[in-house]
């Protein structure tokens, strides 16, 4: 009898220990699951924060490619359309406005221009001072990249008009923007140092777009495209030929066309 009681008690102790171990394991799993959820949420927030520092498409691509320290993303040869935009008379404006007001005005400008570019399948690569460098066809293949870039430029023009009306209501001076667009080959991928890299496009195309943007001052127009781009454009874009101009770093005079509108 006493042996049966002893065995029963022993069994009870073993069961209690086992149940205790199972309970502890369950609690540990719960804690780990909660930590995993928290880590996933942190990662999501980090990705959202990153998407403010780099285009969302770029962040997704880098995450998907598994790019990390010591791992390089493969660069690809591509034909891309580069759009370069710059505020006309920025220096004078910066002398007239308080830095805080200037920053607010500039942020409003950057947001509206970025929205117009994104809406037409472009991605903003970088802000350079008051300038914007955007690409069409760099992240994904895009056979309609030239039309997209010019549509984006027209949307930027319309957005500037609306923004200037807002600025006028606040008693602030209007902004004017010059936009240069060119299409050509280059290498798309991560560029930079070991410490700081960005997804960019390397090639003559970007320089030409920047030079053409500078010509908007010479020709007193807001949107200029190169001959290489014009050849690919929908004939419904109303263009006006500008006189050929010599620009820094390019041997031949550059032929450009001002974009008037997209005819219905």
């Amino acid at each position: 009898m006493s042996r049966v009681v002893l065995l029963g008690a022993l069994l009870l102790v073993v069961l209690t220990v086992l149940l205790g171990a199972l309970y502890r394991q369950w609690r540990r799993n719960q804690r780990l699951e909660a930590q995993l959820e928290a880590a996933a949420a942190d990662l999501q927030h980090l990705q959202e924060a990153c998407s403010r520092l780099a285009p969302a498409g770029v962040v997704q691509r880098l995450v998907a490619d598994g790019v990390g320290p010591g791992i390089e993303s493969a660069a690809e040869r591509k034909v891309v359309t580069a759009l370069f935009a710059d505020v006309v008379g920025y220096t004078a404006l910066s002398e007239r406005l308080e830095p805080a007001v200037l920053a607010r005005v500039l942020n409003g400008y950057f947001q509206r221009m970025s929205d117009a570019i994104h809406e037409h399948r472009g991605h903003v690569s970088t802000f350079i001072g008051d300038g914007i460098l955007a690409y069409f066809g760099a992240l994904q293949p895009n056979p309609w990249q030239c039309d997209d870039a010019v549509r984006a430029a027209l949307a930027m023009r319309a957005a500037m008009r609306e923004y200037n009306a807002e600025l006028a209501r606040e008693g602030l001076p209007p902004l004017a923007v010059g936009i240069g667009i060119h299409r050509g080959p280059g290498l798309a991928g991560l560029v930079g140092s070991r410490e700081r890299m960005e997804y960019g496009f390397v090639g003559r195309t970007v320089n030409v777009a920047a030079r053409v943007q500078a010509l908007t001052r010479t020709h007193q127009v807001d949107i200029l495209v190169t001959d290489a781009l014009r050849a690919e454009l929908d004939a419904r874009f109303a263009l006006v030929a500008m006189p050929a101009e010599t620009v820094k770093g390019i041997a031949e005079p550059v032929v450009t066309y001002a974009v008037r509108e997209l005819r219905a």
Binding site: P143, W144, D147, E232, D234, R236
Partner: peptide, 8 residues
Amino acid sequence: AQVLTHLD
């Protein structure tokens, strides 16, 4: 060709 190049 026009549709495929310019979507219209």
